[in-house]
Design a protein around this nucleic acid. Structure first.
Lengths: 185, 185
DNA sequence: GCTTGCATGTAAGAGGTTACATGATTCG
DNA sequence: CGAATCATGTAACCTCTTACATGCAAGC
């Protein structure tokens, strides 16, 4: 039950339409919280009728008009409250790990291509993260009070980078193990 | 839609009752695929009526009787088929990352205790994994054909260990960042 | 003329969570 | 006597996924 809160954070960082939010959930935010446009539109409606967000019709030339949302006072309060509630340490769903253990009862070698596909997906994501880091976070902070938003986005991005690196190393380990089992002796 | 498959793998590794499965999903298997007993009983019924698994009533003294399930031929076939289908590279749900970015719009320092709580949960899990590794995987493999099940369980466990280590290091980074923002200058 | 991008949805169904329910036995 | 463990479920609700639907403008 945190899609609402992910949307609140994203709208606080920058107001936008449902469509724009859906695109952000395909990129930056979506790397640690996935959501489709159908979900987003539904939740935006509920949030608007609960008074968490305000909508503003924006006419555009050369494109369909859009409804731009921004966070209302009560939405900010709801976010604040959620931030002060404890959450359960993540319940994971790691489908590939299930497959790897399942391969013992099938052909381990047949899984290699699938694992390589996943490895490629992660290998593609890493330079994307690193480019984002170079673009937004290399230049030292302007003197004065630190920008909390910037620092926190950066630490989350560092988490993403560490995760991708760890995953790549592990997938190499998995592939090596599957190869060893596929061609024993 | 992989709870069925996770159950098939677990039952192939060792037959058991719904209750026993629920316990495994609290421990080993559950570290990469969470499930509650309610879910498990519901899915077991469906799997049994689909002919994927067979049930056997086991009378016990000093305890309630139980229904022990084991994988039937068509269940093995279903698992095999699933293993050969590609899956999408995981869609993540990392609630804590949402909170961290949200903290920019609230009090960053207030999040420290919460992050420390998560850090402790991960710090508790790591020695548990390492103990499992020492218990089940230190002694070198018996000569002859390698045991695929053992090797694959081990590589998944190595993944869990790498994940916990990476997460601990990242959470330390997060805590340091939050502290810096809480006490600027 | 076709595809891509912008923009917003509905509807059905699958899957997951939370609360409630029962009943026996063992251990402190 | 109360709590924990073993053992199995039902019911309501919420969330998420997948498929379908519409319509305009720009670029190839």
């Amino acid at each position: 039950m945190a899609l609402e809160h992910a949307i609140l954070v994203s709208l606080l960082e920058k107001p936008g339409s449902g469509y724009e939010l859906a695109r952000r959930f395909d990129r930056s935010i979506g790397y640690f919280w996935a959501a489709t446009h159908q979900q987003i539109y539904r939740v935006l409606k509920r949030m608007e009728s609960d008074g968490w967000i305000d909508a503003r019709e924006v006419a555009q030339q050369d494109r369909p008009d859009k409804r731009e949302y921004s966070v209302a006072g009560s939405g900010r309060a709801a976010l604040s409250q959620w931030l002060h509630e404890p959450i359960e340490p993540e319940s994971v769903r790691h489908e590939l790990a299930v497959k790897i253990r399942g391969a013992a009862f099938d052909d381990p070698a047949a899984l290699i291509r699938e694992v390589e596909r996943h490895r490629r997906a992660h290998a593609d994501r890493l330079p994307h993260y690193l480019a984002g880091e170079r673009r937004d976070f290399v230049e030292p902070e302007a003197p004065g009070t630190p920008d909390a938003g910037r620092e926190l986005q950066h630490v989350v991005l560092r988490g993403g980078i560490a995760y991708e690196r760890m995953t790549l190393a592990w997938l190499d380990d998995v592939i090596a193990t599957l190869e060893r089992l596929g061609a024993p002796r």
